[in-house]
Design a protein around this nucleic acid. Structure first.
Lengths: 344, 344
DNA sequence: ATGAAAGCGCTAACAT
DNA sequence: ATGTTAGCGCTTTCAT
C-alpha cells in the first residue's frame, strides 16, 4: 500500500491542502479546534506520514545534519574517538528532531567532494578531525553551509568553530605527573604529521619540559601515529635510546597500546623499567596490560557541544567562531611509576 | 553564494533544462559530444552541484538507506557489535553511491515510529538486532519498504531476510572445546531475554551438553545480558554453585568481561579455578585479563552482506527471504584450560 | 479561519 | 539529438 499524500489526507478530512499542512506542522492557534480534530483523526485513519523529502524541498530545511569523516578515520571500529563523538552527537540530535547522515569520504578529490557534502540533504555539517591541508577546510570558506569542527583545534584565522580536548593543558598535566614521579628522560611518541592535535601535543610536551629546565634530545621523540602500529614502531625506536628513557608519553591511547606491545616484545617491563602513559582514556585503556595511566578526554561531551553549536548556527543563522576546549582528568592506573633506582 | 540550479546551468550552457538533466545523470550516448562538453564545462564554471532533495522527490529514489537501531543498542561506544556492522555497511554503500542515515530510536511508540523511519528519506532499511516483540517487526509486514535484519535470526515465518552469526554452530564449537579440555560442569550466562540470539545460544548449549549425556542442572544457567554488568551479576550467582562449575560460557564477550571481573573480585583464578569463554571476539577480548578464549563472529562481513542484500532488493524490486548465517572460528587464548585436578 | 495557487529543483515522458 | 511540460508532495504567501 502506498503512503497517502497530503492531498488525499485533505480530501479525507474535507479541508484544503494548505489547512492540513498547517495543522500537521503544529501551526497552533490558527485553526478551529474542530478542524484540527478532523485533520488529526483523518491522518490517523489513513496512517498518514509526511514525506520528508517533499517537505524539505519546499521548506528548504532538511532537519538533517551530516557528520563528515575523512578517509583516514573512516573505520569506526578502529576509531573509538569517532565513535564516542558520534554518540554525543546522536544524543543531542534525536530529542531535537534532527536526523543524522554519515558522510564517510573515500577520497578527497575536490570535484566529487563538493557534491558529496553540499547536495542539499543536510542543514549543516560536523567535521571530525579534519587533517592539515585537507581540501575540506578551504571548501567551507567558499560556501555557506553551517559547520563545526570536532577533534581538531584549527588556527583561529581559519574561521571555524572548533570543539576539542585541551591538548595543551592535558599533556602538561601528564608531563608534570611524570616529573613528579621523578622522571627526567621522558620520550614522546608523536601523532600523525597531518593532525593538528599531534603538533599541539608535541608543543605542549616541549614547553613543559623546557619550563622545567630539561633539555629534550631529538632522539627522545619518535614519529608514531594515532594507532597501535604507529605506537609500536615509535617505541621500538625509543627503546634503543641510551641511556634508556624512563618514561614514554604516547600521543593517544591507541599508540600507547602499541608502545606496551613493543615493551612486552622486547622484555622491557612496564612500569618497572619504563613508564608509559596515553591520552584519551578509551575503553581499551583500562584493560591494557598493565592498565594504562592516561588522561581522560570527555569525548562524549565534545560531541554534544559540537552538535549543540551546530544547531544553534542553523537555527539562528549566526556564525560561531573560536575554539572550545574541554579539559580532562588524569586517570592514574598502573603503567606509570617512579623510575628505577640507580638508573637515569 | 547560493547554489546554482539546473535551470541556471542550462541557460549558461545554452541548452534546455531536460538536456542538462540527462547529461548530468550520465544518460550516455543520448547527446552530441559537443553538447555534453558544453554542459559539463558550464557545470564546472558555475560550481554546480545537483540538489539531491529535488532529485529524490522527482525520481522517487533517495539513494540513501537507513540503519535502524533500537533504544537498547543506541550507544555505539557500548556496542562494538553495532559499530562493526556499521563499518561493513558503510564499506559497501559508499562505492555504490548510496548514503547512510542513522536512525536511533528513543522510544518504540508505534505512532511516532512509522514517521521516523518511513518518511520517504530512505530507499530501504537495515534493522540491527531487533528485539523479540519489537513493534518494528510487525510494522514492516504492513509496509512496502525493503528491509534486511542483522544480528537476529528471526523465525522464517516472519518473512525477513536475516543476516547473523551461526550462533548454534559456534556455541556448539565452544561447548565441545570445553568438553575436550575435560570440563563437565559448564555454566552458561544467558543473554537478554528479548534477544533472539540469546535463546538460540542457550538452546545450542543445552543440545550439545545433552548430546554428550550431561544433565544440565538449572542452577548452571544464570540470567545475564549482553553487557558487562549483566555478565558480572550472572557470574556472582554461578560462582556460588556447589560443587563449583569448572567452566562458564558467556553469551557474548562483553558479558564474559563481566564474568572475569566477578572472578577477579571474588579471588577465583581464571583459568586455573574456572574457565571462561565468550562470543564475538570484539577488540577488547584480546586485551582482557586473561585474554579471552572466544569464537570470532565475522561482524564486518555480516554488515557487508546485509548491505549487499538490501541494495539488491532495492534495485531489483525482488524481496529476499530466509537467513544467512556466518560461521566464525574458535579463537583460543588463555581464559580456558583443563579443569583443576582432584575437583569436579 | 480557510482556500487557492505559486513555487521548491529536479526527472521523465512526450514532442519535435 | 534536443526542447517542452507535467508532475514529485509539500510549504507558504496571498486572498477571501
Amino acid at each position: 500500500m502506498k503512503r497517502p499524500t497530503l492531498k488525499q489526507l485533505a480530501e479525507e478530512a474535507g479541508v484544503s491542502i494548505g489547512t492540513a499542512s498547517n495543522i500537521l506542522s503544529n501551526k497552533t492557534g490558527l485553526h478551529s479546534p474542530e478542524t484540527v480534530e478532523r485533520v488529526l483523526s483523518a491522518a490517523k485513519r489513513l496512517g498518514y506520514r509526511p514525506n520528508r523529502i517533499a517537505r524539505s524541498l519546499a521548506a528548504r530545511r532538511t532537519h538533517t545534519i551530516g557528520i563528515v569523516i575523512e578517509p583516514q578515520h573512516a573505520v569506526f571500529t578502529r576509531n573509538p574517538y569517532v565513535t564516542a563523538v558520534l554518540d554525543g552527537v546522536v544524543e543531542l540530535l534525536t530529542p531535537n528532531g534532527y536526523h543524522l547522515k554519515i558522510i564517510t569520504l573515500r577520497d578527497l578529490h575536490a570535484r566529487t567532494l563538493w557534491s558529496q557534502i553540499d547536495d542539499g540533504t543536510v542543514d549543516g555539517i560536523i567535521m571530525v578531525a579534519p587533517l592539515i591541508g585537507s581540501p575540506l577546510l578551504d571548501y567551507f570558506q567558499h560556501v555557506h553551509l553551517p559547520c563545526v569542527v570536532v577533534g581538531s583545534a584549527l588556527p583561529e584565522s581559519m574561521g571555524f568553530y572548533c570543539v576539542d580536548s585541551a591538548s595543551h593543558a592535558m599533556i602538561r598535566r601528564l608531563v608534570e605527573y611524570l616529573l613528579g614521579l621523578g622522571h627526567r628522560r621522558i620520550g614522546f611518541v608523536l601523532g600523525p604529521q597531518n593532525q593538528w592535535s599531534a603538533h599541539q601535543r608535541l608543543e605542549a610536551y616541549l614547553e613543559t619540559m623546557q619550563a622545567q629546565g630539561i633539555v629534550v634530545e631529538p632522539e627522545w621523540i619518535a614519529q608514531g601515529g594515532y594507532d597501535q602500529a604507529g605506537g609500536f614502531a615509535a617505541a621500538e625506536q625509543l627503546l634503543r635510546v641510551r641511556p634508556r628513557l624512563t618514561a614514554i608519553i604516547a600521543s593517544n591511547d591507541m599508540a600507547a597500546l602499541g608502545v606496551l606491545d613493543a615493551c612486552a616484545l622486547h622484555g622491557v617491563r612496564v612500569p618497572k623499567e619504563v613508564s608509559v602513559v596515553g591520552f584519551d582514556d578509551i575503553a581499551l585503556a583500562g584493560l591494557a596490560k598493565p592498565p594504562l595511566t592516561t588522561v581522560r578526554t570527555p569525548i562524549h561531551d565534545i560531541g554534544l557541544e559540537a552538535a549543540r553549536a551546530l544547531l544553534h548556527q542553523i537555527e539562528t543563522g549566526e556564525t560561531l567562531r573560536g575554539t572550545k576546549l574541554f579539559e580532562g582528568e588524569l586517570i592514574v592506573r598502573e603503567s606509570a611509576a617512579p623510575p628505577q633506582r640507580g638508573k637515569s
